[in-house]
Design a protein around this nucleic acid. Structure first.
Lengths: 350, 350
DNA sequence: CTGAAAGCGCTAACAG
DNA sequence: CTGTTAGCGCTTTCAG
């Protein structure tokens, strides 16, 4: 039911002819209206309107050198935290007239590289990315070698511009919280550390805090994937003699799956064991028990990353910015002594 | 810490010069390698590799007319169903070498129009969109007038190419399920119908089924927004003399908020009243009670929409495709007589 | 199989 | 304030 097949696109020359002016004048009517006699400008715009003409960014980009397009490279949108990140970035981008091209990498460094190359081919003006590991990243090296502006989101690195929460401090807050609930044996669960510097930082922060508070050293359990629990590993963990009384998971999706796995194994949360996550996704509030977590505000991180990127593009600064996190004391982390924790507040009720 | 500022981008001419061939040959090495003497091709590719050269899509697009870019216009990524839709579409797009530009509209027709105009300026080859209302949509009219390929995702319309579930049939399945549980008074809750043809179709299907099964006529409660419950409205509803025993919500996010609101008002779900959603988001399984819903597979819808779009671009067909839905019998919809429903299966355990 | 030449749609210099 | 000219980087006839 396509009424017209391949409409002949109207170009700036036809508008110029129809309006009886030069193509440059038409261009100026759209891009530097202040340079034109108001009457001329109005006339050109009228003619353009009649022809439903809007300047083609392709020609414009090629000639002027700016595509008004940003790239966004994220691990996955299945994790709400990254979906929020997109929304934040896009909100800021569109505010400055930029469009955004997005792609996901599923935490795969090979896909990361391919994705970046594909996007860069479109001559983006800048890139926001969350990479597996910013240290020695060949992608980032290639980008800065090409002089391409970029900002990391979620990743923390002194060597690059980034917008992120302080993962170590956040993990510290969670461990301190667990300690306050009476926990002295805490385990840290995550996906492959090599594929997530966030998980690594959180583990570091957690371990340091455990030392400072003279808790038992934190053991680390590495799952094969970032967001699903390995049932055998969890079962093993629960069988160890001095088993932990609290499991700190490197993200909420993993925490949710860990809780589900524990239940399937016949353990009650938080009565038998406490579980905490990281990210503060809104669905955590709807679970029962509600999920204890650290809120790492995705929208804010995306917005900030985009803001820093645009600043860098327009004014050339390369300042990083830290986004504040917040402890969410959910019911999945209970006191070590008694059963379910006292009712604890969450932002979203559910 | 930017090592190089504005790197002079290497162009096809420099590669041609360096390789001692014409620019046309370099172009062919990348785009029609089969036309070249293997030795020539290899030599060109070697030189290109040394210079880290990749053809600029901008020049290429302008000359050849194809940008290898698709647009995706969705209401919001906060709803996981749309996040999945992106993933499905992008997976299919990248498989054919296409990049995707995405933007969200927050269910606002004005933003929809602006978003489409901005994207179209980039000369996308096609567009996947979920609009408020495909009937009399000026945007869709403009697109087809321009001869721009597009496919609707989630929207159902005989007048346009679309990839969607059969919303009426799906609503029918849910109402039949509720009837089977003993419910005879069902209410339908949604956001503004004018801003969602899906909600409208679901209501239509629900009403028709209620008639067919000789249930009480379905009353409709319209909330001010799509995904949050209006507390006063819910309270009113619960005070009506012949109040419904089941609430069918037009999407899962709304259902979750309705359940939360009911709990806040002191009503137990499903003991006092049953609640069902629509979309089948994975978090529904993690709630307690687990959320009864209709699975409308976002990834599949996105993938299908993109597939149809690429077909249309490459071969010119305009076939629509229906994506199968599936009833999820969650615990939030219980039998009318007894308390909590018997244990019901869900795909994802949580 | 390869090269020369033209031009996609637009805008930046430079004149006037 | 407006027009003329040139050319962004690439691909595509058309010749050889």
């Amino acid at each position: 039911m396509d009424s017209k097949r391949r409409k002949p696109p109207v170009s700036i020359l036809e508008i110029a002819r129809a309006a009886g002016v030069s193509p440059a004048t038409v261009s100026r009517a759209f891009n530097r209206p202040e340079l034109l006699n108001p009457a001329t400008r109005q006339h050109v715009m009228d003619v353009a309107g009649q022809h439903d003409f809007r300047p083609d960014r392709l020609g414009s980009s090629l000639r002027s050198g700016n595509t008004r397009t940003l790239g966004l490279v994220l691990p996955t949108l299945s994790n709400p935290v990254f979906a929020d990140c997109f929304e934040g970035a896009e909100a800021r981008a569109s505010q400055s007239g930029y469009s955004v091209m997005m792609t996901v990498t599923h935490y795969d460094p090979a896909l990361e590289a391919a994705a970046v190359h594909r996007l860069v081919g479109h001559r983006l003006e800048g890139l926001i990315l969350t990479v597996a590991n910013p240290r020695n990243s060949t992608i980032l090296k290639a980008l800065s070698h090409r002089g391409m502006a970029y900002v990391l989101a979620y990743n923390e690195s002194a060597a690059h511009t980034c917008a992120a929460v302080d993962n170590r401090a956040a993990a510290q807050d969670m461990v301190a919280h667990l300690a306050q609930l009476g926990h002295r044996r805490i385990a840290f669960l995550s996906g492959p550390l090599a594929l997530s510097d966030r998980a690594r930082s959180r583990l570091t922060g957690a371990r340091r805090t455990a030392r400072q508070l003279t808790l038992a050293p934190i053991t680390h359990y590495e799952m094969p994937t970032h967001t699903t629990a390995d049932k055998a590993l969890v079962a093993d963990l629960m069988r160890t003699p001095d088993r932990p009384s609290a499991l700190f998971c490197s993200n909420d999706l993993l925490a949710m799956d860990v809780i589900s796995t524990l239940k399937a194994l016949g353990h009650a949360v938080p009565e038998d064991i406490s579980v905490a996550g990281f990210d503060g996704i809104r669905y955590g509030a709807c679970m029962s028990p509600s999920l204890a977590s650290i809120e790492a505000p995705g929208f804010e991180i995306g917005r900030t990353a985009c803001h820093l990127l645009l600043q860098q593009i327009e004014h050339g600064g390369t300042r990083s910015e830290q986004v504040p996190h917040r402890l969410i004391a959910g019911a999945s982390a209970g006191t070590i002594t008694a059963g379910p924790a006292r009712r604890l507040s969450r932002k979203t009720s559910c």
